[in-house]
């Protein structure tokens, strides 16, 4: 007799597809945040599955800080060309040029905080009532209590004490004018699930994730890529090392790890053996104990 059970990856896939279809049904003008990182790539892959053979019925929104790795942008553009999805770009550089945002100064300057302003601005301009993001609950403590459907007030703020209980798989996306939702279709996936799924489904990802030679320097225990956006201190020496990136964010705050994992299989082995979380190489989370919680309250994803 056949056993009617699904593997963990198929069950997660089915759950995410269900969430996408709820979003398409419950909202008038949804949008999917796309960063070019592996989570948003997997998320987009799942969205294509949800609506196949029709096209994904919402656009992608990329908040471009101007500090992206060139590989990320090239990958994004190739994906758009291949799938024909509509891509909208919100530019932090534009916001700075127009005087709407002010650049941080100093050695650890980052555009992470500015990203939030551009994001909220882009959501408002697009009149989007739901924005889907690739946040996962295993990433960080403040995310562990995040809902699939996360309610935001008219200022885009997250109030952890005022979230709707989420029972079974029934998602309540009702709202009044001006409010919107953040939706996290891959809430229940872990970093390991993402990698296993990328391998199982043979999903293309940017070359940055695989081990390669790169000129880097060390700062606060992290390896940062040499680039025009980071001021180096005199004692910070650049040298070529064999590295890869576990996450892809801005060049200014995404640390590389030394690794010779040049295939998905090796990356999975490395992730299984590794003893630090992927956000451990993100300097934006190290700023304070509750860094993520604070940024989320302000409207960060």
């Amino acid at each position: 007799m056949q056993s009617y059970s699904l593997t963990h990856l198929r069950e997660l896939e089915s759950e995410s597809i269900f969430v996408f279809r709820e979003v398409a049904s419950q909202f008038e003008n949804p949008v999917m945040l796309f960063s070019g990182g592996k989570d948003s790539i997997v998320m987009f892959h799942l969205a294509r599955k949800a609506f196949w053979p029709a096209k994904v019925p919402f656009p992608l929104l990329h908040v471009d800080t101007g500090h992206n790795f060139p590989e990320t942008i090239a990958f994004r553009d190739a994906l758009v060309a291949e799938t024909g999805v509509q891509l909208n770009v919100g530019s932090v550089q534009d916001a700075i040029d127009k005087g709407m945002s002010v650049e941080e100064k100093g050695f650890n300057a980052s555009r992470n905080a500015l990203q939030t302003a551009t994001l909220l601005n882009s959501l408002e301009e697009g009149k989007y009532d739901a924005a889907m993001g690739g946040g996962r609950r295993d990433e960080e403590k403040a995310r562990a209590k995040e809902r699939f459907f996360s309610h935001r007030d008219e200022f885009g703020q997250w109030d952890p004490k005022n979230q709707r209980p989420e029972l079974w798989n029934i998602f309540n996306g009702r709202k009044v004018m001006g409010e919107h939702f953040r939706v996290f279709p891959i809430s229940n996936w872990t970093e390991m699930d993402i990698w296993q799924y990328i391998l199982a489904e043979n999903i293309k990802i940017p070359s940055l994730y695989f081990s390669h030679k790169r000129r880097v320097f060390e700062r606060d225990g992290a390896l940062l890529a040499e680039c025009d956006y980071i001021k180096r201190r005199d004692d910070e020496k650049v040298e070529e090392r064999v590295v890869r990136f576990r996450t892809i964010g801005d060049m200014t705050c995404t640390g590389a790890v030394e690794s010779d994992a040049d295939s998905l299989q090796k990356i999975i082995e490395e992730v299984a053996a590794t003893r630090t979380t992927e956000r451990g190489s993100r300097s934006d989370d190290k700023r304070s104990e509750a860094a993520m919680e604070d940024r989320k309250k302000q409207g960060y994803f």
Partner: peptide, 10 residues
């Protein structure tokens, strides 16, 4: 020979 994780459930 499929890797173990392809047989995992939830």
């Amino acid at each position: 020979k499929a890797p173990a994780y392809l047989d995992m459930d939830l």
